[in-house]
């Protein structure tokens, strides 16, 4: 299995390389550069700036230098917009924040979602089932970016219970609203997937056999039904994890958390090439790793799957 994992990771290197090259050219295709401003710079000043950041070189040379710097020195270059900081600074500040609230939201969404889904399936066609399904669909249908202003209005202005934003090193009162905002919609979809998977499993032959043998319902669910139920859930969790980390721009915008989502979107809009590329690479690597983990988890749950 270790060999398989290593092969998968090595196999991803060309993918990441092409990803860098594609993003690089796509990025330069967008009109305007990092130093396009309302007050157009005099040509001699622009020339100095471009020389400093190597933007006066032909594109292929810039790309080559960029790749060499990464491979030889693990250097992702300076930010073109935040002039006091380089890309590694930004990532090392933003990533832990994003991961903290991302992972928390991920676990909250998974735990509540699975619990809700299992409960609904066990009490199939009862009020609990209907309630769980409606809650799930509603949570899923609610666009998650409107949660920010709603939560702040309620918890900060009206109730005065929670601070309206900031990170404060991840102190818990600052975590609550971002986690609720981010986890709600995923919780909805996880509960729905769990429910339908659980229903399918409960109707299958081996569960009927178990019932016939007289095992208690709790034991059947806990020992036999849960594991196969989790298979489709796990395959959904991989992408969810990536979205939670990459799609969290609205959390950073509304709650001033300082995570990577905001950097990523604003880098695209301000043409901060190096930051954009750095985060793109990070996300690409993350996708590859998460896909690998999903497959490993799959194998662990389902012995039928073997690695080639």
């Amino acid at each position: 299995m270790l060999g398989y994992a290593i092969r998968r990771v090595l196999g991803a290197i060309p993918t990441i390389l092409v990803l860098i090259i594609a993003s690089f050219f796509l990025m330069h295709l967008a009109p305007g550069g990092p130093f396009t401003s309302e007050r157009p710079l005099p040509p001699e000043v622009l020339a100095n700036i471009e020389a400093r950041y190597g933007l006066d070189q032909p594109l292929w040379k810039q790309l080559w230098d960029y790749l060499c710097n990464i491979v030889l020195r693990f250097d992702f270059g300076p930010s073109f917009v935040f002039k006091d900081r380089d890309v590694s600074d930004i990532i090392s500040q933003g990533l832990p924040i994003t991961l903290t609230y991302g992972l928390l939201s991920f676990f909250v969404a998974t735990l509540i979602g699975v619990a809700l889904g299992v409960a609904a399936a066990i009490r199939h066609n009862t009020w609990l089932d209907y309630l769980a399904v409606s809650l799930g669909v509603f949570a899923q249908a609610l666009p998650n970016f409107i949660m920010g202003p709603i939560l702040i209005l309620i918890f900060t202005l009206w109730l005065g219970w929670l601070p309206g934003g900031g990170w404060n090193g991840g102190h818990w009162p600052y975590l609550i609203m971002p986690v609720i905002a981010l986890s709600t919609s995923y919780m909805g979809s996880i509960s729905r997937i769990t429910r339908s998977a659980m229903l399918e499993v409960l109707n299958s032959n081996f569960i009927r056999t178990a019932r016939a043998k007289g095992l208690s319902e709790a034991k059947i669910i806990w020992r036999h039904a849960l594991k196969p139920t989790l298979l489709p859930v796990i395959s959904y969790l991989g992408p969810v994890f990536v979205y939670v980390v990459t799609g969290s721009v609205f959390v950073d915008i509304y709650f001033s958390t300082g995570g990577l989502g905001k950097y990523f979107v604003s880098a695209a809009l301000t043409r901060d090439y190096s930051v954009l590329l750095g985060i793109t690479i990070l996300y690409g690597v993350l996708t590859v790793v998460v896909n690998l983990l999903t497959d490993l988890a799959y194998a662990w749950l389902d012995p039928k799957i073997r690695f080639q």
């Binding site: 991803a12 993918t15 990441i16 990803l19 594609a22 993003s23 796509l26 990025m27 295709l29 967008a30 990459t246 799609g247 721009v249 990523f264 979107v265 695209a268 809009l269 954009l276 985060i279 793109t280 996300y283 690409g284 996708t287 590859v288």
Partner: peptide
Amino acid sequence: LYSVPITLVVIL
């Protein structure tokens, strides 16, 4: 393409 962040593609 799967590993390109979608937000980036759409924005660009």
